[in-house]
């Protein structure tokens, strides 16, 4: 439904009043002016400049003057540390999405079962981590998975599963895994609520008539619920993937990319160059890395967007 054809017809009725319409037009412009100013300053301008800065060798002080062409881009794509971070970001996204999206659907289906009691209670519990400050949670996790007296080690030793404590976040074998686990846990509730919203928007009559026709619970799931959820599912997939690709707070607070860059992600990599302090910042280079990654994320989103379109999710995607 286009925005234009549902505007109030009050325009026409008010027309005889001379100057009334013109005054109202001015008021409308005045009403959108604050948002327009914020949009130009904090959305449009930064997008343009994020490209412009990438062509300069600039430490962030004073205006950028030292034009270097594509040097920053060449340096980015030839830096193995960048590709290491890129690989980690993709892996993090893949693991989080692959575990979170189907499991959240399963829980949503369970919580949607008519006869299950305590739905609101469970929904509240599983949504709880979503509302908490990611950076603070990351720091708390540093202690929970800590090598010295961390509660995870204490518990595993007590259960006899471990003989000596493990430095979960300091060891190159386990750090990435722990970051992925905490990442899944932290945003799981969000996907759960998305799925619940999707399930509740399905037409109820369809289920009733299928049930009258003698379909079993599993048949309903297989032939009605899941196919009808595909469009909303692809939107969830798209949103989850883009969010996971931009993980920052969690990694910055839990590991800061370590040990030995094992949990380094692209946004953490870029931050290091953009805000390293001590006058050593390489803002131009950070911007170039940002553009390269921005384009990569766009390509991934487009690929997933095609999936959305293919599964008939246009209606949902076009709304935003």
């Amino acid at each position: 439904m286009s925005m234009a054809n549902r505007v109030s017809v009050a325009d026409k009725r008010a027309a005889p009043l001379v100057g009334y319409r013109a005054r109202r037009e001015l008021w409308c412009l005045a009403f959108i002016a604050p948002q327009l100013a914020l949009f130009l300053m904090f959305t449009a301008y930064p997008i343009v400049m994020s490209y412009v800065y990438a062509f300069f060798d600039w430490d962030g002080y004073g205006p950028p003057k030292d034009y270097v062409g594509f040097d920053n881009f060449i340096e980015t794509v030839t830096d193995p540390i960048f590709w290491n971070a890129f690989r980690n970001s993709l892996l993090f996204m893949a693991y989080v999405v692959a575990v979170q999206v189907p499991l959240a659907l399963l829980l949503a289906l369970l919580l949607n079962a008519e006869r299950l009691r305590g739905k609101v209670f469970y929904r509240t519990i599983y949504f709880l981590p979503v509302v908490t400050t990611t950076a603070v949670v990351g720091l708390v996790m540093r202690f929970i998975f800590g090598a010295y007296k961390g509660v995870v080690n204490e518990l595993l030793i007590k259960l006899g599963l471990l003989t000596a404590p493990i430095d979960w976040l300091g060891s190159i074998d386990t750090a990435f895994l722990v970051v992925v686990l905490v990442g899944i846990w932290k945003t799981f509730g969000m996907k759960l609520v998305y799925w619940l919203a999707g399930i509740q928007s399905l037409p109820k009559e369809l289920f009733e008539s299928a049930r009258i026709d003698g379909a079993s619970g599993l048949q309903l799931l297989r032939y009605i619920t899941v196919p009808l959820l595909l469009p909303v599912g692809s939107v969830i997939l798209l949103m989850s993937a883009v969010n996971a690709l931009h993980v920052f707070d969690l990694v910055k607070s839990m590991t800061d990319g370590g040990p030995a860059f094992k949990t380094d992600m692209v946004d953490v990599y870029i931050y290091r160059y953009a805000f390293s302090g001590n006058g050593g910042a390489r803002v131009g280079f950070a911007s170039a890395a940002g553009v390269v990654y921005g384009v990569a994320v766009m390509i991934i989103s487009l690929a997933l967007g095609l999936l959305v379109r293919w599964s008939g999710g246009r209606r949902n995607a076009a709304r935003l």
Binding site: L36, F42, P46, S50, A286, G290, V291, G294, M298
Partner: peptide, 23 residues
């Protein structure tokens, strides 16, 4: 206005924090 605001959502962005910071 509506088109511009919506269109920027679908544009590839660089690291926009830096321009916001300097602004």
């Amino acid at each position: 206005f509506v088109t511009a605001v919506t269109a920027t959502m679908f544009m590839p962005k660089g690291y926009t924090i830096i321009p916001i910071y300097s602004l």
